[in-house]
Simulated assay, not measured.
Amino acid sequence: MPAESEIAYFAAGCFWGVEAAFRNVSGVISTAVGYQGGDSLNPTYQDVCRGDTNHAEVVRVIFDPARVDYQKLLSVFWDNHNPTTLNRQGPDIGTQYRSAIFYVNDAQKELAEQSKSQLEQAKVFSKPIVTEILKAPDFFMAEDYHQQYLEKRGLATCSL
Rank of each mutant, 00 (worst) to 15 (best):
P2G: 05
P2H: 11
S5G: 11
I7H: 01
I7M: 11
A8M: 01
F10D: 06
A11V: 09
A12E: 09
W16D: 03
W16K: 00
W16F: 03
E19H: 00
V25A: 07
V28R: 11
V28P: 04
I29K: 05
S30I: 10
D39G: 13
D39V: 12
Y45D: 09
Q46N: 14
D47Q: 15
D47A: 12
R50I: 12
R50L: 13
G51N: 09
G51T: 08
V58F: 05
V58W: 09
V59E: 00
D64H: 05
Y70H: 08
L73I: 03
L73K: 01
F77L: 07
F77M: 08
F77I: 08
N80Q: 07
H81C: 07
H81S: 03
H81R: 10
N82E: 10
L86N: 02
L86G: 00
N87I: 06
P91R: 12
P91N: 12
D92Y: 03
I93Q: 09
T95D: 14
R98L: 04
R98N: 08
F102D: 01
F102V: 04
V104N: 15
A107V: 15
K109P: 07
L111D: 10
E113N: 10
Q114G: 06
S117M: 09
L119Q: 11
E120W: 03
Q121D: 13
Q121F: 11
A122C: 02
K127I: 10
T131R: 03
L134H: 10
L134K: 14
K135G: 09
K135E: 15
P137I: 00
P137S: 06
A142G: 05
Y145D: 11
H146T: 02
E151F: 11
K152M: 07
K152D: 08
T157Y: 12
S159V: 14
L160S: 14
L160Y: 13
